[in-house]
Simulated assay, not measured.
Amino acid sequence: MKIQPIETRSPRIEMLPLIDVVFLLLVVFIYAMLSMAVHKGLPVALPTSSSAELDRTAPVSITVTAGGDIFVDKVPVALADLTALLRQRTEAERETGVLLFADRNLPYQTLFRVLDEVRRAGLTRISLQAESERTP
Rank of each mutant, 00 (worst) to 15 (best):
T48I: 05
E7Y: 14
D81G: 03
R89G: 01
G41M: 08
E117R: 11
M36Q: 10
D103L: 00
K2M: 05
A66C: 04
L79C: 09
Q109Y: 09
A37D: 09
S51Q: 12
T124N: 13
V28L: 15
R125W: 10
T90R: 03
L111G: 05
L85W: 01
Q109C: 05
R87E: 09
V75S: 14
I6P: 10
V118C: 01
I70R: 02
D55M: 12
P43H: 09
D81Q: 10
R89T: 06
T8D: 12
R12C: 03
E133T: 11
T90L: 03
P76Q: 03
Q129F: 04
L106A: 00
E53N: 12
L100K: 00
P47E: 02
I19W: 08
M33E: 07
D69Q: 15
I30Q: 00
E117D: 06
V21H: 14
G67R: 09
T96A: 10
P107H: 03
L18S: 11
M1C: 08
R134S: 08
P43A: 09
L18P: 01
R9L: 15
A80E: 14
T83I: 04
R113H: 12
M1T: 10
I6A: 12
Q4F: 07
G68S: 06
L24W: 12
S10W: 11
R104M: 01
P11T: 11
D55E: 14
L26S: 13
T110V: 13
F29M: 10
E117G: 01
I70A: 05
L82E: 01
T65P: 04
F101S: 00
E91R: 14
E53R: 15
I62D: 00
L123F: 07
F101D: 00
L18E: 09
F23M: 11
D73V: 05
R120T: 08
A32F: 14
R89V: 03
I70M: 05
D20G: 14
T57P: 00
K2S: 07
A58K: 08
E14L: 14
R120W: 11
P11M: 11
V75T: 14
L86A: 07
L85A: 04
T90Q: 05
D55P: 06
R125I: 09
L79E: 15
T57W: 04
R56T: 15
P47Y: 00
E93M: 10
R125T: 12
A84G: 07
L100D: 01
V21C: 15
P17Y: 11
E95V: 09
F101P: 00
R89F: 03
A58G: 05
L128I: 09
R89W: 05
R125Q: 12
G67T: 12
K2H: 07
V75R: 13
M15V: 13
R134P: 01
I70Q: 04
S132K: 14
A52M: 08
T57N: 11
S50W: 06
F29L: 12
A37V: 09
D55Q: 13
R89Y: 05
K74I: 02
A102D: 02
A37L: 07
M15D: 05
E93R: 12
S51P: 02
V114Q: 00
L99C: 10
L82T: 01
V72S: 04
E14D: 12
K40E: 07
L128D: 00
K74P: 01
L86D: 03
A80G: 08
D20H: 14
V28E: 05
L128T: 02
V98S: 02
P136N: 04
